[in-house]
Amino acid sequence: MKKTILITGASSGIGKASVKLFASRGWNVVATMRNPDREKELNGLDDVLVSRLDVQDRQSIAEAIEAGIDRFGRIDALVNNAGYGQNGIFEAVPREKVIEQFDVNVFGVMDVTRAILPHFRKNKTGMIINVSSGAGLFTLPMISLYCASKFALEGFTEALSYELLALNIGVKLVIPHGGVSETTFVERATQGGTDNVTPPDYHAFLQSSQQAFARMAAARTMNSADVAAIVHEATTDGTDRLRYLVGDDARGFIKARREMTDQGYIDFMRAHFATAN
């Protein structure tokens, strides 16, 4: 019997690449997105159901899960991929945008997970893959809200994995780091939150940080298909491993976080964004 996976944020990037990979490996796929009417490619794949799911709309979450079960009989795995990166100097980001960042990247993941858990418990098995980020392990300026949301996701996922282990429900993190070439995340961060009004006192730091982000963008070495391959591995390898890192740590951020003293790590990171004297 073919297994079925539900993937959020499937309209582009890692989500779409994951849909294509799982479908090619013989899975049924519920490919969910906010605007399914715009999708032209995935509709043509065998055993792929394109369905509306907006992580900020709990009714759409319930309906997408129900549609997947009605079509394929059951759902065996969930990939919480939907999310976005809020960028800009924190002081300049309006409060409503702060709330939106957590509503999508944290509360949305929680709502989708909560909605599917009764089905997994009924089946006495299931797998949950949460797509995180290197920004959930180390922090960068101008994306403080994105970092905060991914740190929250990391903590939530780790704790949830303890709760669900005895129920035979796996919970894992796939952690891209170093930048993914088909996404616009680094470019948005490089812009420095130009949609927000940044106080002039930050301008020197902003310029220095933009240059640092531009160097990061130039050094990207992976694409969405690379991440999708790790999502597939995490889903199917049969282990209870929690974290799967994918990317190039050429900048040494993860190594510094894991191996340096706390202050040594902070000094190392600050040097990347220091303004000229």
Rank of each mutant, 00 (worst) to 15 (best):
G9M: 10
A225Y: 06
Q101S: 15
A77G: 15
A225H: 14
V227L: 00
R251I: 08
E163D: 14
I169V: 14
R215V: 12
V112H: 09
M33G: 09
L160W: 10
G178P: 03
D111G: 04
I7V: 13
A115M: 03
Y146I: 07
V50R: 00
N105I: 06
D267Y: 02
T239E: 11
P118Y: 04
T236D: 02
K124E: 15
R38D: 08
T184Y: 10
A271H: 14
L140C: 07
P141A: 00
G193F: 04
P176H: 01
I14W: 04
N80R: 02
R243D: 00
S224D: 08
V98Y: 14
W27Y: 15
N28F: 07
A214L: 13
V131T: 13
H272Y: 13
W27T: 09
G238Q: 03
Y162R: 12
T32P: 05
A214F: 08
T139A: 15
R58K: 13
P176A: 03
R38M: 07
N168C: 09
D57R: 09
R58W: 09
K2W: 11
A214D: 11
N43Y: 10
L167C: 08
G126W: 06
E158M: 09
G193V: 04
A152C: 08
F213E: 02
G136L: 05
S209L: 10
R95L: 15
S12R: 15
G108Q: 08
V29L: 03
V98F: 14
P141S: 08
M33Y: 06
T236E: 10
D248I: 04
Q210M: 10
I129H: 13
K20C: 02
L173V: 06
A23Y: 12
A64T: 05
T190S: 13
A271V: 06
A67P: 05
F213P: 00
N130W: 04
D111N: 13
N123S: 15
D57K: 03
F268T: 01
T239P: 00
G178W: 06
F120Q: 03
R188G: 15
I89F: 13
V19I: 00
H272R: 12
D46I: 08
R215L: 08
N80G: 01
R258Q: 12
Y162M: 12
Q59S: 13
L167R: 12
V30T: 00
A135V: 04
E182F: 08
R215F: 03
T32M: 11
S208T: 10
V48L: 07
L145H: 02
R25F: 00
L137P: 05
S149E: 04
D226V: 08
F273A: 02
T275E: 06
L21H: 12
Q59W: 01
R95T: 15
N223F: 05
T235L: 10
I254H: 00
E163T: 09
E187K: 13
F213S: 06
A189R: 09
H232K: 02
W27K: 10
K172I: 03
F268P: 01
R188Y: 08
T235M: 08
V231S: 03
T113D: 03
